[in-house]
Amino acid sequence: MTTTATTPAGARPRAAIAAKTLRTDRWWLAPLLTVSLLVLWVAYATVRAFMQKWYFVSDYHYLTPFYSPCVSKGCTAEAAEFGRFLPDWPIIPFAAVTLPFLLLFRLTCYYYRRAYYRSFWMSPPACAVPDGHRTYSGETRFPLIFQNAHRYFFYAAVLISIINTWDAIRAFHSPQGFGFGLGNLVLLVNVILLWAYTVSCHSCRHIVGGRLKHFSKHPLRYRAWGFVSKLNAKHMQLAWTTLGTLMVTDAYVMAVSANWISDLRFIH
């Protein structure tokens, strides 16, 4: 009998296409931008974390998020809201208690993973562009299997966001008592966006309701899940904007603290 069917017969070769990729658009632009911006940000953050000065404006109680909570013995007494217990060594950032968790929260974030796997690790650099590695085991083995711990860093990030919120509230301050200036707006916008980034996390979406099988039995968790899902769709945008606001907030506090600019006050 004649048949037009293709009988599966062992391993057959793929199409012998010589070009590694036939993409004609600028697929390299996105990974290039990611690398440049992340390197720039990490460089800035590293310098600032170890600078150990210009982190606090005592008149207005502005504390930069890079030094919050300020728990080193080297901290200004007014800035240390949570006690001072870390030794004052130049290699230990004043906020060494929280900075590693923030770093790990972003390092294991599902969005940042996409960003750095594509740009730094080239696995793959862009869709339908060959992976730069001979073998590949994904996140199945040590050390990448620890990406699964993302939810723990999410819990830590929630605690740190509470501390940042406290800092933003404490900053409504002037030498005479209550005060409100441009710096407060900067700190507020930063802390609101930090919350939005933290809450939009994929692990958070899972924890508040994604893990359920029956939304109908948990109406409140379903509503919370719906809210987080909406934010979650913007997780990438929030990941980048919060890097921006963190840098701007820190730079503003640094500039006011170093007397390069003076804070614009609305209420003294």
Binding site: Y110, R113, R114, Y117, R118, S123, P124, C127, A128, Y136, S137, G138, E139, T140, L144, I145, N148, R151, H202, S203, R205, H206, G210, R211, N232, A233
Partner: peptide
């Protein structure tokens, strides 16, 4: 575990299914 969520599947889906955000990441979690 092999998936490293680089989201190309979502990018090419002609039905615009949010494969990574709505299926793979929830399954990983």
């Amino acid at each position: 575990g092999y998936c490293n969520i680089t989201k190309c599947c979502t990018e090419v889906c002609p039905e615009h299914i949010k494969i990574t955000d709505n299926a793979i990441i929830p399954m990983k979690e």
